[in-house]
Design a protein around this nucleic acid. Structure first.
Lengths: 224, 224
DNA sequence: GAATGAAACTGGACCTCGGTCCGTTTAGAG
DNA sequence: CTCTAAACGGACCGAGGTCCAGTTTCATTC
């Protein structure tokens, strides 16, 4: 199995650099609803599982969250966990859902400079700072929740952020290949990179933030 | 076990933005020797294993290379594979070794614009194009060989390329935080990203290359 | 309000694969 | 020849993921 149906939509074909993004694309990519009309027992078990997983993380860190342990702690069979969340990253992602939603609401409809109203370049700057902070708060969980290999980029939550960045970029550097620039900016915000820099090497967060602001400046600077 | 000794050196502390890189750092990070004085039987088995793995990849793709299959195909115990290569990514990395070495030789001592002699910005451009092409040739293998999570960035072969990029960047934008810019540029060249863009979405390689040249321009453009 | 049938859910046995362990074997130096 | 460090191999383990026979929900029908 790959994913529950509501997560498995095929990726849209890649638009040419000059094609505008369909506004609906943003909607499409919005995070799937938390509990898409589950049967009563299923919803109950889902809640139990999330709570159990939460507890396990608090006790043993993200690494201690094995699927069997979660199932056992929730008093449920292993198969149930997989049916509900697809795979381990699905479960972990669900735990991040609240935080992801809040971030998304903030930049879609919150107050400036993150939300609409501020100049796009400022929104971009604020966006990066927000993402970096969020990453710093939940590093291990975000790290563990990240699918490996290629799937990282196909993941809905990645795509939501990516599309937002691209939208902002288009308003600042309309002539550039914003899809690619967007991937570049997103890569800077990769939790794995952040963890590597702050955890493994001892880089302070402020330097990462400064680096983001500088990167945005460079990327959005229009031709000499 | 983590790694055979010669691979396990701890990462150096992160230099402040303004500190110059010790030239020796480049040497330190040079790829470890292929066969560091192995016993005769060990060397023989190592060769057998690599050959077997190669064959398995040719037949079933990188995904078909299980450690047991390789061991069996080489007529060797499973423990031997792990003792020799540490883990799966170690084995896969060893398969990429030739190609990695050639790339490294090319940009360390080959002819311009990749090698020394050309202006640093040109070398940077050539570097990216070379990496993209190499990635395109061996996508599945590079993808499978990539360690997941944070270890991706700590891996010697990543660090070698990163350090090279940083060195070039310092010659073009001395005042910037080249460590971070270097990570950003490297992220653009991430095999997983390349595979996502060319494989999953249908992006042609030329667009990726154009994107790289543009990115280098933007990043190295000195203040307005 | 009870019967009913299909769709959804459940649980745990089972599989695969990466990785570890440790008792045994062997290369090769002295 | 001997002795030791190195290499060997395969049993073993844990964890993610699959499968499917049995169970539960609930909308529909009577």
């Amino acid at each position: 199995m790959l994913y529950p149906v509501f997560m498995s939509a095929a990726l849209p074909p890649f638009p040419k650099p000059e094609e505008p993004v369909d506004a609906r694309q943003l909607l499409e990519v919005a995070l799937a609803p938390d509990e898409p009309c589950l049967r009563a027992d299923a919803a109950r078990n889902r809640a139990r599982l999330l709570e159990a997983a939460s507890r396990l993380i608090a006790e043993h860190g993200a690494a201690g969250v094995t699927m069997e342990a979660v199932a056992a702690a929730a008093g449920v069979g292993k198969g149930t966990v997989f049916r509900r969340f697809g795979d381990r990253t699905g479960l972990l992602t669900a735990l991040l859902d609240h935080s992801a939603r809040r971030l998304q609401e903030d930049f879609l409809g919150g107050p400036p400079p993150l939300g609409p109203g501020a100049p796009p370049a400022d929104r971009l700057r604020a966006f990066g700072v927000a993402v970096i902070h969020r990453a710093a708060e939940q590093l291990d969980l975000q790290l563990a929740a990240q699918p490996d290999g290629t799937r990282r980029f196909a993941h809905p939550s990645h795509r939501a952020l990516h599309i937002h960045v691209v939208m902002l970029l288009r308003q600042v550097v309309a002539d550039a290949d914003c899809e690619l620039l967007g991937q570049t900016l997103m890569a800077y915000l990769d939790p794995a990179l952040i963890h590597h820099l702050t955890g493994q090497r001892g880089m302070p967060l402020e330097r990462l933030e400064k680096g983001w602001l500088d990167l945005v400046d460079r990327v959005t600077r229009t031709g000499a």
